[in-house]
Computed example of a mutant assay.
Amino acid sequence: MIETVTDYPALAAVRNRRSWSKVTDAAPTRAELLTLIAAAGRVADHSSLRPWRVIELRGEDRATLGAAIAKAEGDDKPSTKPLRAPLLLAVVASYRKSEKVPRWEQEAVASGVAHTLSLLLDEAGWGVIWRTGHYTRAKAVAKAHGLAKDEELLGWLYVGGKPTGARPGRRKSVDPRAHLSRMPAPAKGADKDGGATKTGAKKDKKKS
C-alpha cells in the first residue's frame, strides 16, 4: 500500500522526464504506439468528446513535412528539421460541435494527450521532445497532414532512441510556492456568492 505521496510511481516518472533534442534511429513500433496512445487517451475529457488524433510520420513522411515547412516559410530548400528523429508524432486537436465544451477546453484535452504521451514514451525508454513553431498553423503544413477545417496542429513529438552516454536537456526545479495559492478573501460587505450584503446595498443606495 502507498503510504505517502512520495511513494507514487508516477511521481518519479514525472520528475525524471527530460526533453531529448538528439536521438538515435531506433523508434517504437506501431503496436507499441497503440498501447501508449490508448493510455494517453485517459486524460480528463469533458463529455468524452475525444477531440484529438495522432499522425505518425516515418521515412519519407518526414521529407514531405520538410517540403511543407519550406513552402510555409518561403524557402527554396526543404527543411531538414523533421529529419532529426526517426519518428514524429503530430498531435492534432479535432474540434467537436458541443454546447457544453468550448473550443479552448477541447484544445486543452489534446494538449493533455500530447504531454501524457511524451511522458509515457520517456518512461518506456524513448527520447522525446515536443517541437512546435509558427508554421504549425500554415496551410501548406496542414494540407501535408490532411487536416480538416475543424482541426489544428499542436506540434510534433520527435521520438527516437536515447543515445548512450548523452545527457538530456536540463530544466530548473519548480518552486511550488510560487504557483500554488488560495482563493482571495471575500471583500468586506459581500455575501458568500460575491454580491453586496443588504447593509452594503442600503449604503450604496443612499450614496446614489
Rank of each mutant, 00 (worst) to 15 (best):
S111I: 04
E152S: 12
G133M: 05
R177D: 14
K206W: 05
S79D: 09
S208I: 06
S21A: 09
R50A: 12
N16R: 13
G146C: 05
E60D: 11
P51A: 02
R42P: 05
K188L: 10
A26G: 13
R15I: 00
M183L: 12
A178H: 12
V141A: 07
G59F: 06
T199M: 04
K71M: 05
P78V: 02
G169Y: 11
G66D: 13
L121R: 00
H46G: 01
K71T: 14
D75A: 06
T29V: 00
T6W: 15
E73N: 12
E60I: 02
R96F: 00
A27P: 05
G194T: 11
E151K: 07
A85M: 04
A70G: 05
S79K: 09
K81S: 07
H179D: 07
L147W: 11
V23W: 02
G125E: 10
G146H: 08
S98Q: 06
W130R: 08
L34W: 13
E123I: 02
L180V: 13
A40D: 08
A67P: 06
K97N: 11
L153Y: 06
M1A: 09
A148Q: 14
E73W: 14
P9M: 03
K198Y: 03
D204L: 09
R84E: 08
K203Q: 14
L117E: 14
A72N: 12
R18N: 08
G195H: 15
G165L: 00
S208R: 15
K22Q: 12
D76I: 01
L87N: 05
S19Y: 03
G160V: 01
G112N: 07
A201Y: 12
A63D: 14
W104Y: 14
M1S: 13
K97L: 06
S19V: 02
G125M: 08
E60Q: 08
L157W: 12
E105C: 00
A166S: 08
G195I: 05
E73P: 07
A185S: 11
P168Y: 01
S181T: 09
V92Q: 10
L117I: 05
D193L: 04
S111Y: 13
T116D: 11
E32G: 05
V91C: 06
S181W: 10
D7N: 03
R84K: 06
E107T: 08
R53G: 02
K205G: 12
R42A: 06
A44Y: 11
A10Q: 15
R170E: 15
R167H: 08
P86M: 00
S173I: 02
P176H: 13
S181V: 07
K162G: 03
W156F: 04
K71R: 09
P102F: 02
T136H: 10
R182L: 00
T64W: 04
A38R: 15
A67W: 05
V43Y: 11
K143G: 03
L11N: 13
